[in-house]
């Protein structure tokens, strides 16, 4: 069993990063193709869940010492903040700004405040999912 666990844990670490990057990809893809902050967040959360299964709650908590409720709050603040920026420049709430840039490596890229908003969504989803899993896990 011990050996198995080691293998499992090793694999889990690798798979975690693969899933995580996949999630990041989905997140950025959202504006043009299917994906987005919400799905990205859920996929990230499932990556963390994988770690939880491979190790256990306490270890993961030591690995990622995060208060997920704060993640939720920060996500909300980010989303609200992004939406509120426009208020300060005399534009209706939630007016987004974007422009197209040519960056080396990426080529034509758009920098979009909507992406910041989506990041907020992402954080909330990760935070909430992990809060649920952690509290239920703690209870058992």
């Amino acid at each position: 069993m011990k050996v198995n666990n080691v293998i499992l844990q090793f694999t889990a670490k690798i798979v975690f990063f693969i899933i995580f990057f996949f999630a990041v990809h989905i997140f950025f893809a959202g504006h043009y193709t299917p994906g987005g902050g919400f799905v990205g967040g859920l996929v990230t959360a499932s990556a963390i869940v994988l770690l939880v299964i491979a190790f256990d709650l306490n270890t993961v908590h030591k690995l990622l010492p995060i208060n997920y409720i704060y993640v939720v709050a920060i996500g909300l603040i980010l989303a609200l903040g992004t939406a509120a920026i426009s208020m300060f420049v005399e534009q209706p709430f939630f007016t987004h700004f974007f422009d197209y840039f040519y960056l080396p490596l990426f080529g034509k890229t758009s920098l979009h405040t909507a992406a910041l908003f989506d990041l907020g969504v992402y954080l909330v989803v990760v935070g909430v999912t992990m809060t649920i899993i952690q509290t239920i896990g703690d209870d058992e």
Partner: peptide
């Protein structure tokens, strides 16, 4: 400035819905 109409609706045209949709999620959490 987007290509995925559904997602642009979610974060832009009707981003307000999404803002409070994640609020619901947060409260659930």
């Amino acid at each position: 400035g987007g290509g995925n109409i559904v997602n642009v609706i979610l974060v832009d045209y009707r981003g307000f819905d999404t803002l409070f949709e994640i609020a619901v999620l947060a409260i659930a959490g």
